[in-house]
Design a protein around this nucleic acid. Structure first.
Lengths: 224, 224
DNA sequence: TCATTAATGATAGTATTGCTATTATACAGG
DNA sequence: CCTGTATAATAGCAATACTATCATTAATGA
């Protein structure tokens, strides 16, 4: 996300646009750090206010509750990855090469970058891996879906699916494969770090190359 | 799970074995129904007590908190699927046929069956699809993993991985593929029902056949 | 049959969470 | 300098997440 570019999550996510004010940006910045640190279950607006040296009431002026804040952050992540994908595949002609670069983007989403200064994308990536699915695994999913809460995810998947179809126009499951590539990237980074017997790859520090290799293997085997 | 067979989740999950008493069984039975109905976020022991016509304090004698109850239920599900897999592939010689039956089991886990009378496996399946990942996407995952909370999942994955290796001994990612088959089954049933643009399959009522077909396609393409 | 114990129910109470309301202060634009 | 807007400070309330105590019942067994 080049400097000056603004990520634009759905207006329905917030009561007041956090990107418009200093306090709002601080909420985004600090909530990412705090959720990453203590986990979404233990996170609340009181703790966030303390960490920000602001007040609970002020945070509530921006977001209805912590679920809406998570939706906002997760949506930001989807948009951010979409953007990275675009940038990284720009001017690439070969579809297979494009898919490789897409996979690399999904795995290494956090790659440092001239990004929005108040968002630590690397931490956001980790947050998404750990908490992302909680955004849509709720009883409210259908209503929220109607209101467009997950559009960014769908657009991301559509973009990947388009490339899949460029490679193999008759592939019967382009969206499902796109979704799986994205989910696999996140899942197997998490499994490698926390439940290693559920995977075959290792992650050492920031080195996700084995995950990248594996997903490439899966993708191209399926599209062979 | 033939009548008389007892599922045996880790003792560390509970304060007092719920399978040993009438009230305990009622907690299992009613909590599955209530979580399925209102979602895990809104679920609490007070509401469960009301639904059971018991008291909050009584529920707390069995489970430390709702997270531990979820771990118990999820673990039950993993064990139940493991058991079904065994039964369904018993006496099957051909490894490919075995994998097909395993996939069918993962997708149709809820298939009615001479099961434990106080657990509605069909509802448990739905609950797992919606809430399952919340059991291990928590800050406590490493500690809980050490205490063996996820052994049932690992054993399930190992069983599938063994069959994968029977089919293709040199397949480089047997555990990851096993995990993905399981995760895909759950994800795409959920996506088909709630976020259809993330997948290519349709689920109509209880008919998961398109999911089954798709996962078979993925698995055998990868093992070709 | 009585005494003992274990399980549950009934009730109460405390600390924290989730959220709303009110007023005061600061400070930015006209 | 005035006026509106954003934030801070504070309070408060209802719900949640437990814990403790005691009474009641059921089951066990001497």
């Amino acid at each position: 996300m080049a400097i000056g570019i603004k990520v634009s999550p759905n207006k329905a996510f917030y009561l007041k646009d956090p990107q418009e004010t200093t306090l709002g940006k601080k909420i985004i910045k600090e909530s990412i750090l705090l959720i990453d640190e203590i986990g979404f279950e233990d996170f609340n607006f009181k703790k966030l206010a303390v960490q920000m040296e602001s007040t609970e009431a002020s945070v509530y002026r921006y977001f209805e509750n912590k679920h809406m804040l998570l939706i906002y952050l997760v949506s930001w992540y989807w948009e951010w990855v979409s953007y990275l994908m675009e940038v990284n595949t720009m001017n690439i002609k070969d579809s297979k090469e494009k898919l490789k670069l897409i996979i690399r983007t999904l795995v290494y989403a956090s790659k440092d970058n001239a990004a929005i200064e108040f968002v630590n994308e690397s931490v956001l990536h980790r947050l998404f891996i750990a908490e992302g699915t909680k955004a849509y695994h709720r009883k409210t999913v259908d209503q929220e879906n109607k209101e467009g809460f997950f559009l960014n995810y769908k657009e991301l998947v559509q973009k990947i699916a388009d490339v899949i179809l460029e490679i193999k126009p008759k592939f019967p499951y382009p969206h499902a494969l796109a979704t799986e590539l994205f989910e696999m990237a996140n899942n197997h980074i998490y499994f490698a770090q926390h439940l290693p017997r559920l995977t075959d790859v290792e992650v050492v520090g920031e080195d996700y190359s084995e995950v990248d290799e594996m997903i490439e293997y899966f993708a191209f085997k399926l599209l062979a």
